[in-house]
């Protein structure tokens, strides 16, 4: 389990992360969502031992990560910007990776490259942005690590390749018990991929939950009455949001759907519908409830 405790990282006078706490269980796909500058990349770099925390610590199974080579052999990090040595090919980069990772699997590297349709002898400098990300992913998946960190990796992939990468990650998680941590500024990108989601906002995690819990714990209630009514009809329900247009009211409720429906039926509505909410809406309402302003379209901006 990866545990961050009071994790703080500053760049000059700006705190990129401030007293961040979280736990990432083994064998899950963990999504980090947040706006640009929220601290996602910094968190991943701290988690992979690239950066040293200024305060607090980040550990794997209770052991600090920074400069711990034994732990880092279990990590593979795909940065938001894949760097390759000048004039190097994937094969050349594989040589660098195999010098670092004892368990680097050349067979897997070759087969993955074939699966992605990448020429391993071609200079990486001639690759498109998407191809570079694929190359970085292939190299990472060949390391034999059991913790994978992807920094906005999916953002540059086309849907076909994105699905291919996701499938490969699922295999790692399901078959090998690997842990995958993915960051993105787009919630939609992570919605159908992650088991757990955390929202980073101004250097801290403001919300963290299982995706399934998030989706089922909130629902939208649309209701209309043949008589005049006010908000008191919802007494007994935990409302996160309430709006009324004419005789129709819309409310976002946290709680059990059936119990809520039964309670509303007691008021004899002429219209009663329970609608699901999207993950983005869940985040929006939860954030509003916590007192944060969260713009769904901008992933938090």
């Amino acid at each position: 389990m990866i545990t961050a405790k009071n994790l703080t990282k500053r760049f000059s006078d700006v705190a990129a992360l401030h007293n961040l706490n979280c736990q990432i269980p083994d064998g899950c796909v963990y999504g980090l969502v947040g706006a640009n500058g929220a601290g996602k990349s910094t968190f991943l770099r701290l988690a992979t031992g690239v950066y040293k925390p200024d305060e607090g610590d980040i550990t794997l199974d209770g052991i600090p990560v920074f400069e711990n080579i034994t732990l880092k052999k279990r990590f593979a990090f795909v940065s938001d910007e894949f760097w390759a040595m000048p004039q190097s090919s994937m094969e050349r980069m594989a040589s660098l990776y195999s010098a670092a990772y004892d368990a680097f699997d050349h067979k897997r590297f070759t087969s993955l490259a074939k699966e992605f349709g990448l020429d391993t002898s071609r200079a990486i400098a001639t690759f498109s942005k998407g191809m570079r990300r694929q190359a970085a992913t292939i190299l990472a998946l060949s390391t034999g690590a059991d913790h994978y960190f992807f920094d906005e990796t999916f953002d540059g992939l086309d849907p076909v390749m994105r699905n291919l990468v996701k499938q490969l990650l699922y295999v790692q998680v399901v078959d090998k018990g690997a842990t995958v941590i993915i960051s993105s500024h787009s919630l939609r990108e992570l919605e159908d991929t992650c088991d757990q989601l955390a929202l980073l906002y101004q250097g801290g995690i403001v919300m963290q939950s299982d995706v399934s819990d998030l989706k089922t714990s909130l629902f939208k209630l649309q209701i209309a009455f043949g008589h005049d009514f006010d908000k008191t009809v919802f007494d007994g329900l935990e409302l996160l949001s309430y709006t009324r247009q004419g005789s129709v009211a819309n409310a976002v409720v946290r709680g059990d759907k059936e119990k809520s429906r039964a309670m509303m039926q007691q008021h004899n509505p002429i219209l009663l519908e329970i609608l699901p909410v999207t993950l983005e809406e869940v985040f929006l309402f939860e954030m509003e409830a916590l007192g944060y302003a969260f713009d769904i379209a901008q992933g938090g901006n």
Binding site: S79, F82, Y101
Partner: peptide, 19 residues
């Protein structure tokens, strides 16, 4: 040279090799 590029520096320092 990897010390002069953030992406390169991050890559090298993410590898399981001590500084």
């Amino acid at each position: 040279s990897y010390l002069f590029r953030r992406a390169a520096s991050d890559l090298y320092h993410s590898l399981p090799i001590s500084r």
